Amino acid sequence: MPYEHPAREDIRKLLEQSHTIAVVGCSDNPERTSYQIAEAMQAKGYRIIPVNPNADNILGEICYPTLMDVPEKIDIVNVFRRSETVVPIAEEAVRIGAKAFWLQLGILNEEAGRIAEEGGLTVIMDRCIKVEDAILLPDRKQTGK
């Protein structure tokens, strides 16, 4: 069955109930979209955990090489990687017990979505988490970071 986005209300509830977002592929370069979106979500009050094997610290947070290395609970796994590379990330998201597997705008992989969904995760593909948060939770408190 082809992928369908969750209902907007379900996405809103997910965002309301989530606190920690692991950003896989988060860049330490402020010019990159992954950095900018992670920074914006951090400013909205989410705890951001960067996952990048080539960086030590991003946005004042310790960076981890993989999801499996993160020592705390993750609500949303937000992915900034090419579509053809995301299946192992979906498998890790299931193993760590995340609530959701979120592929950013332009990223779509049916197999990864199936793996995450069968593992009990909410799956969102080809949508920007920052845009969805701004639309669905416009009044969420900014922390000023």
Score class of each variant (00 low, 15 high):
G113S: 10
K141R: 12
I21R: 04
G106D: 06
P71H: 06
E16N: 02
D133V: 07
P65Q: 12
A40G: 15
T85H: 02
P53Y: 01
H5V: 07
M68R: 15
D126S: 01
P53A: 05
R32K: 10
I58E: 10
G120D: 12
R81W: 09
A134L: 11
D133C: 05
D10Y: 05
T122M: 12
P6I: 06
R47N: 11
A134D: 14
G119Q: 07
R32I: 00
L137A: 06
L59A: 02
E84Q: 15
R140K: 15
T85N: 02
I11R: 09
P2I: 03
S34V: 02
P88W: 11
E92Y: 10
Q104P: 06
E110Y: 08
Q104L: 04
K13S: 04
H5T: 04
P2A: 07
G120S: 13
K130M: 15
K145R: 13
T122Q: 13
E16M: 08
S83D: 14
V24T: 01
M1H: 09
G120Q: 13
I76E: 04
Y64D: 08
D10W: 06
N57I: 09
K130C: 12
A7E: 12
Y64M: 11
S18C: 00
A116P: 06
A43M: 13
I115F: 03
G120L: 11
G97P: 13
N109T: 07
L103T: 08
T33R: 08
L103C: 14
K44D: 14
V24R: 01
I37T: 11
A90T: 02
A98I: 14
I62V: 12
N54H: 12
C63A: 07
T66N: 15
L14N: 12
I76Y: 05
G106K: 02
E84V: 15
R95V: 13
G106A: 04
L67P: 03
